[in-house]
Structure formats: structure tokens, C-alpha cells
Design a protein around this nucleic acid. Sequence first.
DNA 1: ATGGCATATCCTATATGA
Length: 288
Amino acid sequence: MKIATFNINGISSRLSSLLEWLAEASPDVVCLQELKATDWAFPVAALREAGYGAVWQGERSWNGVAILAKSMEPVEIRRGLPGSESDTQSRYLEAAVGGIIIGCVYLPNGNPQPGPKFEYKLAWFERLIAHARGLYKSAHPVVLAGDFNVVPTDFDIYNTRSWKRDALLQPRSREAFQSLLSQGWTDTLRTLHPQEPMFTFWDYFRNHWQTNSGLRIDHLLLSAPLKRALEKAEVDTWVRGKPHASDHAPAWIELSDTALTRMGRTLLKGKAKASRKRAAPAKRKRSQ
DNA sequence: ATGGCATATCCTATATGA
């Protein structure tokens, strides 16, 4: 199973390149961020024609997240994080696809910092960390994928010189990301490529794409049951090189289907065992 | 400290992104 994340930077003006990438890469699941479109402007018909079911949470002008699934309809679990009912920004969407929980994340950018936008970023991050803890502990197979707007280390950027003051590199942003990982999540791109930067974003300025001056800010994280299934983690950099491209490239992982099948059986067994355990004391009580 | 570019919208201007 191939799972991807792609900050599309405007789905309306990028629809043709999205369809081209879907046809070429054929991912099973896609997390999209920065739709920059209202719910009713989401191109559900074009995506269905391309073979993808979708759930989405749009917003006028900014933000917006979606989860696509090949030949399936993702089953929506939640939109928005717990504890942010008054937050109107569309930044988190969660759905089940083929027995896996997919969390699509668009973390606030946080610039300029310091300031209220940076505080909003950190507060949002705390809510994500709290929700992720529950997901991880649930022992479900979970993938958290999206634009986290954090450059985890200096190795994840071409050069820190002009970015030192940026919200993406601040110690507090990095601490929050490490705190999330410390729950046990696997940072897939870094785990499978410890020696390569693996950039996912190149800004539109100063020929940064042409000089490969990028940042790694799009991440795919795995919960414990999926770790053994991880086979590949890559970035489709060719998409960034196309004319009229998003400033992000799609990043994706490949999970072994045989490992997923095995994992499914183990999880079912575990559930059966757990329900027997729950049933056992009740029986004893009744017989007493 | 600013700008370089790109997207969106209440569009000969402004907010936001990272």
C-alpha cells in the first residue's frame, strides 16, 4: 500500500498537475494540504473520474485538507482536533482506509515569530500531540501524514543562514516535533534515508529549486503496528520540476501488503484474546 | 530588516505562505 502526502498549494489552479501525478505515481492513499478552496469548489468529480474517492475539509482562500483513496471511499473519523471546536481553520482530517487510520495534518506555519501566529502554531501542535498520544496508544495501525511546517534538524535544510529566525526552525517548534516522535512514531523518510537530506519543499524565490535549496517539512509518521511493514519512503521531486508546480513535492511510503495482511491477523487475534480476557471474569462472577 | 514568487479574493491591492 502506497501512502502519500502532498501540499498542493491551491487545488483549483493545480488540478491538472495533481491528476498527472496521480496517474503516474498511482498512490493508494493521498493526504492533501493547502487546498485553498471552499468545500463546494473541491474537484470531487474529476478525482472520481481519476479513480479516487475523497473526504475533504475546505476553507475559503487558505488551508484546507483532503484524504483521497484509490477505488475506495475513505471513512471519515473526525475533522479538526479535539479541544479546538472554536478553531475555524481547516487543518486536520482523519479517515480510515483499508483498515488503517490516516491523519492528514496541516500544521500552522507560525510566521512571523515571535507573535500570536507562532503561539497559535505551538498551541495547535500541543493539541495534535495530545490527540496523537491516544491514537498511538490505541494500538491501531495509524499514519500521520502532512505538512508539519517543522524542519526537524539542521540536516533537513540546505543552509540555515537565512532561516535562523523562521518559525520552521525555532527550538520550540523542533521540541514539539521531537515530543510527538517520542511517543514512538517512526519518521519514515529519515529512518530509511539517514544520510540524505530528503527535501520536500523548495520556495519560489532565488532559484531555490534549480539549486536544490530545499527543506524537509512534509512528514509521514507510523504507529508501532506499521513499523515492520515499511518498505520504502521517497519524494517525487520530478513533480516540483514541472512548470507551474506547487512549492512542495509529494512524499510517499510503501507498506508491504503481506506484512499488512499478517498485521491484520495479529490484531484480530489480539482483539479476540482481549475480549476473552474481558469475558472471563464476568463468567467467574456468574458461576460464584 | 527586506525581498524575492505564487496563490487567493471584497482584485490598478492586500493577506498569506515558508
